[in-house]
């Protein structure tokens, strides 16, 4: 703590650091503290320090199934988003003069609350007599997370200097070769951040799966939610939150590693 010496005048000038204090306080109360609570809850059962919560979670098959389901749906969603989003982002970056409006159109769904979007998707499926299940869940996920894939891809793709493309053509590459050998490798940072922005929310989401599968399919986010609310099992819920956290951190580390190995230099 800074103590102002008595013989000096009160220093009224702010240091730039002090502007960050409100957020640091917020961070401590709403992020660090809950994390500590999760940690404590995970290792405490019946008032004792124990691994019982972990044993409970890993011995219960359904919990692991949910985790497996989440990862699979996360992978599939991310893959579909990439496959669908890349051509869109590429197309948008090619016509950048008039594309502002187009980009807006593609990102517009982000402006509507995801619950409303998901509920209306459900209504459409019901009206069309589509059976709710895995397929509809993946659809809902892709629909929700596609903009998060397109935006970083679009940013990266449109920042690739045209001279690289011209250099590639000049060296004998036709349009397809230019795409595969120049544009694709140069857009790796965009792909990485697109994947990060899609995969991590996708595995931890709740509500989308619940709504679009008529409560048949539970994802990890849903079951954490249930442990805390209906189950009132704070111990196992905390263990699951911890596992989630570990997956997210590992995912991020992996992506960062990729990014460094691939190229961080392409966005010039």
């Amino acid at each position: 703590m800074n103590k102002t010496p008595k013989n000096k005048k009160l220093n009224l000038s702010f240091s730039r650091k002090s502007l960050a204090y409100p957020y640091v306080l917020f961070l401590i109360v709403f992020v660090v503290l809950p994390l500590v609570l999760i940690l404590i809850n995970a290792f405490v059962a019946d008032g004792q320090l124990t691994f019982q919560n972990f044993i409970d979670f890993f011995s219960d098959g359904s919990g692991l199934t949910v985790l497996g389901n989440s990862l699979v749906i996360g992978f599939v969603t991310t893959l579909l988003c990439l496959v669908l989003g890349y051509p869109v982002a590429y197309f948008l970056s090619k016509y950048h003069a008039s594309s502002k409006v187009l980009v807006l159109l593609f990102v517009l769904p982000m402006w509507v609350n995801f619950l409303i979007r998901t509920l209306s998707t459900k209504a459409i499926f019901l009206a069309l007599d589509v059976e709710l299940g895995m397929g509809t869940v993946v659809f809902g996920m892709v629909y929700n997370y596609l903009p998060f894939m397109i935006l970083p891809l679009h940013t990266t793709l449109s920042s690739i200097s045209n001279s690289y493309i011209e250099a590639s053509e000049d060296l004998g590459a036709d349009k397809l070769t230019v795409l595969i050998k120049t544009v694709l490798p140069l857009s790796v940072p965009g792909i990485i951040s697109g994947i990060t922005m899609t995969f991590i929310p996708a595995i931890s989401t709740f509500a989308i799966s619940e709504l679009l599968s008529n409560r048949q399919i539970y994802l990890f986010g849903d079951s954490i939610n249930m442990q805390f609310t209906t189950g009132q099992n704070f111990g196992v819920g905390s263990v699951m939150s911890l596992i989630m956290l570990v997956i997210v951190v590992l995912g991020n580390l992996l992506m960062n590693k990729f990014n460094k190995e691939g190229n961080t230099r392409s966005v010039l």
Binding site: S163, E166, A167, S168, P185, L186, G262, L268
Partner: peptide, 8 residues
């Protein structure tokens, strides 16, 4: 003009 060497 600016070489346009492929950075990757």
């Amino acid at each position: 003009q600016r070489y346009a060497l492929f950075p990757h």
